[in-house]
Design a protein around this nucleic acid. Sequence first.
RNA 1: GCCGGGAUGGUGGAAUUGGUAGACACAAGGGACUUAAAAUCCCUUGGGACUUUGUCCCGUGCGGGUUCGAUCCCCGCUCCCGGCACCA
Length: 869
Amino acid sequence: MSDRYEPRRIEIGWNEKWNQADLFRVVEDKSKPKYYLLEMFPYPSGRIHMGHVRVYTIGDVVARFKRMRGFNVLHPMGWDAFGMPAENAAQAAKVHPAKWTYSNIEAMKAQLKKIGYSYDWQRELATCDPRYYKWEQLVFLKLLKKGQAYRKKSQVNYCPDCETVLANEQVEQGACWRCGQEVVQKEQWGWFLKITDYADELLEWTEKLDWPERVLTMQRNWIGKSHGAAIKFPIVDPPQGFEDKVEVFTTRPDTVYGATFMSLAAEHPLALALAKKNGREAQVAEFQSRVAKQNVNERIAEGFVKEGVFTGGYCTNPMTNEKIPVYAANFVLLEYGTGAVMAVPGHDQRDYDFAVKYELPIVEVVRPDKEENRITNTGEAYTGPGVLVNSGPFDGLDFETAKIKIAEHFAERDLGGPTISYRLRDWGISRQRYWGAPIPVIHCPKCGVVPVPESDLPLVLPENVEITGIGGSPLAQVEEFVKVTCPSCGGPARRETDTMDTFVESSWYFDRYACPDQDGAMFDERVDHWMPVDQYIGGIEHAILHLLYARYWTKVLRDLGYIKADEPFMRLLTQGMVLRNLWECPTHGPLRGDKIVPAGPGQTPRCKHCDSPLTATGPKEKMSKSKGNTLDPEELVDLYGADTVRIFYLFAAPPEKEMDWSDEGIQGAQRFLSRVWRLAAENLEDLKATPDSWDSGLLQGRLKDLYRKLNQTIKKVTDEIEERWHFNTAVAAIMELVNEAYLTLADEKAKADPLFWPLLRKVVDKLLLLLSPMVPHIADELHTMLGGGGFLLEQPWPGYDPEATQADEIVIVLQVNGKVRAQALVPADIAEEELEKLALENDRIKKFKGDKPIKKLVVVPGRLVNVVV
RNA sequence: GCCGGGAUGGUGGAAUUGGUAGACACAAGGGACUUAAAAUCCCUUGGGACUUUGUCCCGUGCGGGUUCGAUCCCCGCUCCCGGCACCA
């Protein structure tokens, strides 16, 4: 026992005790309601960072709270273990990715344990384990069978120097992030999953999920459903091997009479075919190769010029029967719609600009009112609502009605009809990487693509691979992996050397936590016991990719009969980032990370050039090594203790908001815990000596106030955690209670009351229960010092006496014309008439009212009286 | 451009159903204790004015509105953050 609060001493002890007691182990228990709480699992980079501490602390409070509330809580942890950094480390440090990954896992697991998180480590999993990725290889085979996994050629970012495909995130200003070489677009074969089959269901469920609105909006935009019409334009003298019509997608079928030319995507095969036929091959081919070099970044950059080239071909506007020229244009995307656009320069700004540039006719077909031709009046396309003109039998129709009528008209003529288009593309899962799950197929020169037999799974990643970072897929270098016999014909064949996108692993790990020890099947009955996740917590940066893929994969598993859940995560909390100031040297100005000599927490970093202590400078930014504003959480824990770090995070900001790191703030957190410690430790003998049973009804004066504060605090903290997820205000409420307890302790008269020590004991006991989900080490320590047994986590969450939260007397605000002019202390159960009388007799109210007549008297019981004159 | 979110003291933030704006902290200033420091405790702290210890005025990005009463609801703006973007 010690009088001083020494966090690390007690924290190490309690960690051991919890582990020995297997306190965080959870087994399925049908007698209690289940609660599945999950935080996004980390990539095992080697050390946890501040963002991890924030999200896992929030999760741990909820997990512990729900458990005390009587739920059977599943709170697992694992490792998103495949990915690029392991391959980079292999290159740089000549260590095998597996070895690097597993040693990082050990290090990070120790760090997480050090902070006291209540994970059931029996359920730990790592996605690079063949016992894990075996099952997603199986799902891939099932999808292949159903036709929902397929192979196609598509455009990818490619670095010619490194001979590798780059993700969009690895392209920096059009150049390779590694070697700086200009990135080109290249056609390449790859495996795709038909997520577009689920576009509508994914969209519909966004209406039913309890998720932050902005995440749902992002997903809706990403899916990008738009209603319109497909319209087939007959081609005049079609080239050989092509259909005699070209289909376009439009959201404005009402403007079809105004289509005066057609734009094809530059890469559209029809464009070159038409050009060949009409002697314009050279011009179109030149244009195509120029557009091919323009990468995605360039295309969205400002000042990007719309341009095109005439193919020499024509098609027919199916309504006006006029011959309209066909252009290839750089702003038409092959991947969206049909890669062909009917151009209506009168009512689309891009088409208008294009028509002006190439001197093509502009026809008005929608007019806002009877007189005005808005197009000639303004010199730009008119895209607003209106009535049809120059549209034959459809003249005079409202444009919304015309959209429907004209789309139906095309359906009747078998030239298209109403249709829907999506922005969502199928999910390309092929990666030319080593450290990922192998895609289980074999390429046979005779039989084509042959699935690896299910009985051969897992298809294990070979270990003896040299990782150079260049030369395409590392697996292609491993002869004993590549050379196989075809399972179908027995002839020589080659194994697929692509591995799966690591987003596949993170799309179902939460299912596997239900039964990670099940080796005979992907899942057993436990998966439907636990799924779906009741509450998911993670960073906003995963708003689209991970959260969309996980939703998709859940529906895939459901339709394959593996699970029952429709959606993986019923509720989602996206926690804000942790920000910190940058550093500035008095002589050298603002510094980047590599010019800073780092210092431990609470100490000032120094300038690498002149060794001057640095000063903080704004604005605050996300922590990163290159900015030099990182902090190592473990150093903080060593210095201040895990409990201090935990409560600081909870108190500094509500969870969904960005959080400014403050070096001073954490000392305030420690000061508070120290006050809690002293409240119990300095009064230990008196608190231990109190009788168990006493009558709270006998409390008077200050003691009664403290008892009321206690009950109010329990109510407040419960509501804040359970309903609002605002841990900062929960902590604030507990601070108020501690302050009140100290004030009562300082009051000699109150202290002399025989009920003082029994009351204070009750306050301290409840206080420790309220604090235990947030700061579990100090809470268990003080609980034990006071003679309590067991662990607070196994005790029920405290209840409160609703009657005791009510004050006998309340302050009523007295207003004249809505301005506060006086206050009155009145009995809580005062009658309205009494209040009115009291207000009108108040001197100050009389003064401000003057002799003006009373127009109205507003009485809000328990709050205020407003005299309106 | 479209979609979403936001703006409150020196700082982080609070105000839960339209009812005392600034809880709880941090920082700052003053004081007590101490040989001193640390630690701890107490006081002050939105701005302004005055007949200066208690009273008045102003104040939640800006301008209007609804209401007895608006940080909260409505209309019109400004700025900031995030996402998407020649999506036909």
